[in-house]
Design a protein around this nucleic acid. Structure first.
Lengths: 136, 136
DNA sequence: GTTGGTGCAAATAGTTTGCAGTAGC
DNA sequence: GCTACTGCAAACTATTTGCACCAAC
């Protein structure tokens, strides 16, 4: 646990915020003026791999596009990144949450909820096969 | 509707796939060899603004980090990009879907579901205020 | 002849990586 | 003297943008 890593972790835990790497970099630099952005990225990576911090919404890779507009859901393969459609189009999560929050669309903090984004993760058929082939 | 835009739309609708801009660019180039990547991006943007195509998982901006590891959910402000925590930690969507798929963890196509990612969208208190101030 | 669209290339944003130097055991 | 880590800068990936040209009305 180097001083740099310590400061990063402390800052992330001091309050509930969700800084970007660059925002965090600026905050760290106030305490350790010679820190570099690369170090911040490296430590964020190490810390999240160690399960000490979380990342908001980590779908990686480029954006993907979809020619079909009927309501459906996506499943992204964590191995190859490809996206498949899922048939499910039941009640949306926003509706579920609205029930949970007593029918309100606004949270205590004044955040007005208008939608949600959901994506499933897993391993596609092809990658499942390859995994099995590779393992044994 | 230029030839380029036509080909992009056709390709996206020919089958259920979810190409990246670059994958699509390669496919378009097979039909229109002189097309440029910039044109593909511009048309993808126009088509999705027109509601003719969809985008998979479009949270924009840089990745954000989180120092708190208790189970919770995030709400992202579509105006300023900031992320807030939501108290909700009810049944996960994976569990819901598992019920929907009859308890199975694998879809018909052989996709093995292992998790999900969910994020709420809306407007935070500060941006709601500013909107109202700007409008009135 | 103006409008919107294009190809090309350069710019931008976010992130990762190569490298030489360093702090702590 | 290893080892893990650092600062710095360059590289890389995905996307956007400036610009001169072009096609259609």
């Amino acid at each position: 646990m180097t001083p740099q890593r310590r400061v990063i972790l402390d800052l992330l835990r001091e309050k509930r915020w969700h800084p970007t790497a660059v925002e965090l970099f600026r905050a760290v630099r106030r305490r350790l003026p010679r820190v570099s952005l690369g170090t911040v990225y490296r430590n964020l990576d190490l810390l999240s791999q160690a399960g000490k911090i979380g990342r908001v919404d980590p779908p990686e890779g480029p954006r993907r596009f979809d020619g079909f507009m009927e309501r459906h859901t996506h499943a992204r393969c964590v191995s190859c990144g490809n996206v498949e459609d899922l048939e499910y189009s039941g009640p949306g999560w926003t509706e579920v949450l609205r029930v949970v929050t007593g029918g309100s669309e606004t949270t205590e903090s004044g955040f007005r909820l208008t939608g949600h984004r959901i994506e499933f993760e897993g391993t596609c058929a092809r990658c499942s096969l390859e995994e099995r082939a590779g393992a044994g």
